[in-house]
Design a protein around this nucleic acid. Structure first.
Length: 225
DNA sequence: GCGACAG
DNA sequence: ATCTTGTCGC
């Protein structure tokens, strides 16, 4: 699938922060404008201390969570992992995978955050701008924001606040299990992101798009694909 | 100055 | 993220 290279990725950490400050102004948090029939999950995997990265995207039918398409690429990561600058490490490889995609998914879920980020431009929002598709983040842990523990049953959630602003939600995707952290990225709002996450239930804490993408890239890394 | 810190 | 065995609980 195509996308617009809004800026280079080979920058220094300081330049990365400056780019985020500039790019954030283009982010649009708004209700979905089209119904979602297909949703993609993205993830990357790598061996510790190695620069080779395995990136993959899995597109599912939201109706039955069946696989529509999946692509994987083996690439290299040069940028280090720095909290707050995750997109500069993972986006290049994920965009290479995006290029191999034959069809554009109606929504894209990322393993990380959207606006629940110190500068409101986590990986889901950042890549969302490049691919110009409804994008949101569903992370396994918090980067920024505080919240009250949501009720223990699946479906309950409580807002995450950062500097007094609601930036996401701690959402229970499974009874009695730690919540996942959902936040809008671009061209979507929090209610829609929460609904989509719950709609992707496969019986696990991690929603199916991300879970399947994770399995895909790990298999790729282990040479099982 | 002291912690916190997506994957 | 990745490295790893057993183990507690439904």
């Amino acid at each position: 699938m195509n996308y617009t290279p809004l800026h280079p990725w080979d920058v220094t950490p300081a330049e990365a922060v400056a780019l985020q400050q500039q790019m954030r102004q283009q982010i649009r948090i708004e209700p979905l404008t089209q119904p979602v029939q297909t949703i993609a999950g993205c993830d990357i995997s790598f061996n510790k201390f190695e620069e080779t990265v395995y990136a993959g995207i899995v597109v599912l039918n939201l109706a039955d969570l069946s696989v529509v398409e999946e692509v994987g690429v083996i690439s290299r990561a040069t940028f280090p992992y720095v909290p707050g600058l995750l997109s500069f490490r993972e986006a290049p490889a994920l965009l290479e995978a995006w290029e191999k995609l034959q069809t554009a998914p109606d929504a894209v879920m990322f393993d990380g955050h959207g606006m629940a980020h110190p500068r409101r431009i986590g990986i889901a929002a950042h890549i969302g701008l490049f691919i110009d598709r409804p994008s949101f983040g569903c992370g396994k842990s918090v980067l920024v924001g505080k919240y009250d523990e949501p009720a223990p049953e699946r479906g309950n959630w409580s807002p995450m606040r950062h500097h007094g602003e609601v930036v996401g939600a701690a959402l229970r995707t499974k009874n009695r299990v730690n919540p996942v952290y959902v936040s809008p990225g671009h061209r979507i709002d929090l209610p829609a992101a929460i609904e989509l996450t719950l709609a992707c239930n496969g019986g696990y804490r991690i929603p199916e798009p991300t879970r399947r993408a994770h399995n895909l890239v790990n298999a790729l890394r282990k040479g099982e694909r």
